[in-house]
Design a protein around this nucleic acid. Sequence first.
DNA 1: GCCTCACTCATACGTTCGTTTGAATCATTC
DNA 2: GAATGATTCAAACGAACGTATGAGTGAGGC
Lengths: 209, 209
Amino acid sequence: MATTDTRTQILDAAEHLFAEHGYRGTSVRAITQRAGANLAAVGYHFGSKSELMAAVARRVVEPITAAQCAGLDKLLARTPDPPVSELVEAFAGPLFDEMPAGDEGGARTSRLIVTILSDPAEEARSWTGPAEDSVRDRYFAAFARVLPGLSPEELWFRMRGIFAVTAVDRLQVHQQPSPGCESPVAGDAARQWALTFLTAAMSAPPNET
Amino acid sequence: MATTDTRTQILDAAEHLFAEHGYRGTSVRAITQRAGANLAAVGYHFGSKSELMAAVARRVVEPITAAQCAGLDKLLARTPDPPVSELVEAFAGPLFDEMPAGDEGGARTSRLIVTILSDPAEEARSWTGPAEDSVRDRYFAAFARVLPGLSPEELWFRMRGIFAVTAVDRLQVHQQPSPGCESPVAGDAARQWALTFLTAAMSAPPNET
DNA sequence: GCCTCACTCATACGTTCGTTTGAATCATTC
DNA sequence: GAATGATTCAAACGAACGTATGAGTGAGGC
């Protein structure tokens, strides 16, 4: 059907261009041109550029959130006190695994996520839904249980750290590559490095308050 | 003198607005209006909007880089093999300390740094100079010495992690505040949390290659 | 055959953007 | 106090932006 086709091609083009040039750096004209669609198609299918971005964000973030949720369910079904390393893996792993095929080792999708979360425009707040908050809160409770000495504030800090490391690591594609080491590296290695890095960090002794 | 005054007021206004709304989200008109200057003053004093951003970036990043450099000098003057915790503090500490007065606990400046480093535009690559690269390479060598089992690739990954945690932590100001904990938290606490978090992460055993 | 509906199309509207221009103003020097 | 060089000013330029409009197209139902 031609309808879904155009819609999907606009979504694909927008996902690519938003990841590459940011929200404001991508024009509706560039999106429709890449999609082989008419300029007005964005307005027809999505209503506005901002709503198109929301649709793109939903499509990218949803499988990640779902995998995080399923991973936690599976973990807690086994024991209420899973090891920190497994909690970290269930939370951060999907950020490496749930990347669409054809992505450059997840780098493009990572960039898109950073774009979504770091855009200062207030309209960006509506690009993600309440499902992410719910999952985040559930992981917070699980971490709080297995890291009892940690104040809520410091635990929030550490969870933001998880997100920062996983999401921002592959952002440096924008930068000149580090000498002697091209980034992004192979996804599997980065995944393992991140889990090691984050498990140690989460397991650090709490600061006395 | 009126010259430096206008120039400085434009720099101040630009720093504020770039941090709050990003590079593309800030218009030259908004900057000059906030600075109480004429629209053409940006062109006269800086040449273009992009060069103004470069000047803003230089003014913010320079003291941080200088402090990082001085901290490493002081550390290495004492011993060639400093503890990981002190290397982390020398590298990440200035990102908390070298914040201009009047900033909201460094949150605004942190946001500006994230804006600079995450902007997808290719002109953003010229906003920072070679001094940052030099400092980064020196820290890389120091970390490599005290963490001998780590491959260069994994060490680069971890150093990017340091940056990610320190810079992105306070980014979440854009987001809705985490329930039960407003962010940004008091700067001193966040500084300590970050150093604990990152020292543990950097000290994690290396992955076999 | 024709109506209906979903969709695509070329085109235009109004706004905002970064930059430029040339005259006006100011401080300083001789 | 005239000349000079630096700075500020109001105004305008052309380009690019997001969005809206109304005609056009084609398949499916009656």
